[in-house]
Structure formats: structure tokens, C-alpha cells
Computed example of a mutant assay.
Amino acid sequence: MSKSNSIDLKKYDLYELLDVPQLSSEDLVKKAYKKQALKLHPDKNPNNPKAVEQFQLLQKVYEFLLDPIKKNEYDNVIRARE
């Protein structure tokens, strides 16, 4: 994951961005990412000036949720809020 990318994930509900329930499994995250990636890819949205930004955010969320340590910490924060 690139540190130079300035997207701040703290501002987002990561599961909501993938359109999956909170605390979703890795498999569900992967399936949702593929679906959203096809939908949001800049090549599929040439008239959307924010397409690149949205796709980069999606990639960042995906990388974050596939990291077991980061995902576990994030899920613990969600559980604590409930």
C-alpha cells in the first residue's frame, strides 16, 4: 500500500463503500470489491471526473480490509461503537 496516497480512510465507513454488511468476511469483501471495481472503473466511467478518485478509494479500502490485522482493529472499533 502506497503511503503517498493521501486518502484518509478514517472519514469513511469501509463496509458501506463496498456495499456489504459490517464485519463482512474476507470472501464477501473480495466479491464486493470485484463488483464495485467493475462498476467504478475509470474506463467504464469516462464522463465522471471523480471516477479515478472513487476507484483509488475503492482500492485503498480493499487493501485495508484484506490486511487481517487492520481489518481486525477496524472491526473491533465497530463492535465497540455498538
Rank of each mutant, 00 (worst) to 15 (best):
S6E: 14
Q59Y: 01
A51G: 07
L66Y: 00
L23I: 12
L17T: 10
K39Q: 13
D13G: 02
L38C: 08
Q54I: 00
L40S: 05
K35N: 10
V52R: 09
V77R: 13
K71A: 13
K71Q: 10
K50H: 11
Q22V: 10
D8S: 14
L66E: 13
L57S: 03
F64H: 15
N76I: 01
L14A: 07
N48Y: 02
H41G: 09
K60P: 00
R79D: 04
Q56F: 01
N72Q: 15
E73Q: 15
P68Y: 08
S4T: 12
S25V: 00
S24G: 08
V61R: 04
P21F: 02
P42E: 01
S4P: 00
Q59T: 02
K39A: 12
L9I: 08
N5S: 12
E63G: 03
L9S: 01
P42F: 03
R79E: 13
K10G: 11
K11D: 11
V52G: 01
E53K: 06
D19F: 03
Y62Q: 03
F55Y: 15
L66T: 10
L14Q: 03
I7Y: 06
A80I: 10
A37D: 03
P49T: 02
F64M: 11
V61T: 12
D67P: 04
A37V: 02
A51Y: 02
D19I: 04
L58W: 07
K3N: 14
K71S: 05
A32S: 15
Y74Q: 05
L9Q: 05
E26L: 10
K50L: 12
N47E: 13
K35S: 13
N45D: 05
V52W: 04
Y15H: 02
K34Y: 08
P49K: 10
H41W: 04
A37L: 02
L23W: 01
E26N: 10
K34V: 10
K31Y: 09
E53C: 00
E73D: 13
F64Q: 07
F64W: 09
L17G: 15
D43M: 09
D75T: 08
V29H: 05
F55Q: 03
Q36R: 15
Y62S: 08
N47Y: 11
K35C: 02
P42L: 07
D19W: 05
R79K: 14
D75N: 15
I78H: 08
A32N: 06
L40P: 00
S25F: 05
K50F: 12
D75R: 07
N45H: 05
A37F: 02
P49S: 08
E26Y: 09
V61G: 01
S25P: 07
P42G: 08
V61P: 00
V77K: 14
R79Y: 05
F64S: 07
D43P: 01
A37E: 11
P21W: 03
S25D: 09
P68N: 13
N5P: 00
E16K: 15
E63D: 14
K3I: 03
D13T: 04
K60E: 10
K11F: 11
K30C: 06
L9H: 07
P42M: 04
V52A: 10
Q36V: 11
K10I: 05
